[in-house]
Simulated assay, not measured.
Amino acid sequence: MPRVSRLVALSTAALLTAGTAACSPAPSSDEDGGSGDWSTVTVEHALGTTKIESEPERVATVNWANHEVPLALGVVPVGMAEANFGDDDGDGVLPWVEERLDELDADTPVLFDETDGIDFEAVADTRPDVILAAYSGLTQEDYDTLSEIAPVVAYPETAWGTPWREMIELNSTALGMAEEGARLVTDIEGRIEEAVAEYPAIEGDSAMFLTHVDTTDLSEVSFYTTHDTRTRFFADLGLTAPESVASASAETGEFSLTRSAERADSFDDVDIIVTYGSAELVEALEGDPLLSQMPAVDDGAIVSLPGDAPLGTAANPTPLSISWVLDDYLSLLAEAADGQQ
């Protein structure tokens, strides 16, 4: 890629203005200035094998939420992706990330604008020792270009399909903090278990997540499959995947599917519907002659999340957002289960 030479040959000015803080905990140094107790870390992923031969001191992250892993572990990245979904105050940082930065008494890292894809030059300007992207949609070309800057950890199997536990596992391993990452997973699981116990009414209910519902044309219904991290989060919350969604998901590797509204009766096994939208969307579903026949719609068991607000964003679970959203999300699900929404 012709950009590569520009990425590697950084200007003096860029070096002086590189990212604000942060590094992993300072390594013990040997006579050569390296870490005395670091062993090379090898991470296999869908786009290759990455070797991290020295302890990272400057951590950059790209794509959605990867920065939450080092932050949760007390490491402030030198650069991270700017939030472009659910950012209610327009500062490029989601509220649970801002709270964690405040807890660490840290400035906001350099924010990478990924509106038109990864800003390779901006990433290179932060001079990272490692680039975390365990939850991402990196192409092979993206990966190869980033690898010219620093070792890159990509997703394990499928683009945008890494569950939150594996995101933590891969990214923490790359930092040499695998044990801390495992403890983080255990801690989050404990918080989830404690919160779910307060809402026994939803335990065992089946849920589906409708997506991209067009209130002006309800002839088709799109929904996230069980491959998507939003629907996988249902299991953490004590919900189950209805057989109608599970069987359809088994036939594809896609994250969403579309069905004709004429087949709405196939979703008779859905107890709760979650979707992005407003009261107008709920009214449209309830007023549609076909979709209103779905038991979940008929019962009013619909959770409509604000797609452009943090609450809707957190339905896609990430290491820091889970604790932030748990009570609100569970409360909405419980209300829907009771047909109160």
Rank of each mutant, 00 (worst) to 15 (best):
M1N: 12
P2T: 11
R3P: 06
V4L: 10
L7D: 07
S11N: 07
A14L: 02
A14P: 05
L16W: 00
T17C: 06
G19K: 01
G19T: 03
A21I: 02
S24D: 11
P25H: 10
A26L: 10
A26W: 06
P27V: 01
P27M: 04
S28A: 12
E31K: 11
G33D: 07
V43R: 14
E44A: 14
A46D: 07
K51N: 13
I52T: 07
V59S: 03
P70L: 00
A72W: 06
M80A: 15
N84A: 10
N84W: 09
F85K: 14
D88P: 06
D88M: 08
D91T: 01
D91N: 15
G92C: 04
P95S: 06
V97R: 10
E99R: 15
R100Q: 14
L101T: 05
E103M: 02
E103F: 00
A106Q: 08
P109W: 01
V110L: 09
G117I: 01
E121Q: 15
A124L: 03
D125Y: 06
D129N: 14
D129G: 10
A133G: 12
Y135G: 06
G137H: 05
E141L: 00
E141I: 03
A154V: 02
T158P: 01
T158Q: 11
T158V: 14
W160T: 11
S172Y: 03
T173C: 01
A174L: 06
G181C: 02
L184W: 11
T186L: 03
E189P: 01
G190C: 06
G190W: 02
E193Y: 04
E194T: 14
V196P: 04
A197Q: 11
A197W: 00
E198M: 03
P200L: 00
P200V: 06
A201R: 10
D205V: 00
M208I: 14
M208S: 07
D217W: 04
L218S: 07
S219W: 01
V221A: 09
S222K: 15
F223L: 12
T226Q: 10
F234L: 10
G238E: 05
S249N: 08
T252Y: 08
F255H: 07
L257Q: 15
T258D: 11
R259T: 08
A261Y: 05
R263A: 03
D265A: 10
S266K: 12
D269H: 08
V270K: 12
V270L: 04
I272E: 11
I273T: 12
G287L: 01
G287W: 09
S292V: 03
Q293I: 02
M294H: 05
P295Y: 06
D299T: 02
A301S: 15
I302C: 03
S304D: 12
G307W: 14
D308S: 13
L311C: 00
L311D: 09
L311A: 08
T313S: 08
A315C: 10
S321H: 13
S323E: 15
L326S: 03
L326A: 07
D327P: 00
L330W: 08
S331E: 15
L332E: 15
L333Y: 05
E335V: 02
D338C: 02
Q340K: 15
Q341I: 00
Q341M: 01
